[in-house]
């Protein structure tokens, strides 16, 4: 792991340097100002919170018609809850539903694409080479390490986010939660649950 960690660190340092150089050049040429860059980053990150994703799942659990709209066109459906994705075009989001017969898990093997607007910045392990390479080859072992144990006949489907769609998982609603309110249900949802590396 230490080798891969160093590699990740070197890669991110190289990217930071390139970004710094690019911003510096754009500023010197009068194309961008530092405050414009800061405002854009702030606007993006202030809207990108995991609470968005938790709210969306809780609504899907209590409202079957909303869930159908979410599974058909998640980009529009999350707008009903006031989650604004307009700063993120042309990226679209898609919800994939866990069932008794199917468990979904999300990855980006090419880089680290992630439903940032719904889940906030991604966990460090999500960006690691170990996760990205192993989860497509042997997802059951990776899920086992996360403590997710699935029936041997359950289908495991790995979604590799290779293009302009960002995936998130709608976990199965836990048993015995019939009396909970939508807000209480939202508190049960976790970031890993929406990636597929945890059950809820």
């Amino acid at each position: 792991m230490s080798h891969s960690h160093e590699h990740d660190h070197e890669a991110s340092a190289a990217i930071s340097n390139r970004v710094k150089h690019l911003i510096g050049t754009l500023e010197r040429r009068g194309i961008l100002t530092e405050s414009q860059v800061d405002a854009t980053i702030h606007s993006f990150l202030s809207k990108a919170r995991p609470a968005n994703g938790f709210r969306v799942v809780a609504r899907a659990w209590v409202d079957g018609e909303f869930k159908q709209r979410l599974l058909t066109d998640a980009t529009s459906a999350v707008g009903e809850l006031g989650v604004d994705l307009s700063h993120w075009a042309p990226v679209r989001i898609r919800a994939v539903e866990n069932t008794h017969a199917l468990h979904n898990v999300i990855v980006c093997t090419l880089c680290s694409c992630y439903p940032l607007s719904l889940l906030g910045p991604s966990p460090t392990w999500y960006k690691s080479e170990a996760y990205r390479s192993r989860v497509v080859r042997d997802p059951r072992s990776v899920l086992d390490e996360f403590g997710v144990r699935l029936a041997p006949d359950k289908e495991v489907r790995v979604w590799d986010s290779t293009s302009e769609l960002r995936y998130f998982v709608v976990p199965e609603r836990p048993a015995g939660t019939g009396s909970l309110s939508e807000a209480e249900l939202g508190e049960l949802v976790t970031t890993n649950g929406l990636i597929g590396t945890a059950l809820v």
Binding site: V136, R137, D138, P139, R140, P152, D153, K154, E155, V156, R157, V158, W159, D160, S161, T162, S163, E164, L165
Partner: peptide, 16 residues
């Protein structure tokens, strides 16, 4: 991955 891969695993990607 070949015949020794798990028969209950599938993969999805968005491809042009």
């Amino acid at each position: 991955w070949g015949a020794d891969a798990d028969g209950t695993t599938s993969l999805v990607a968005d491809l042009f």
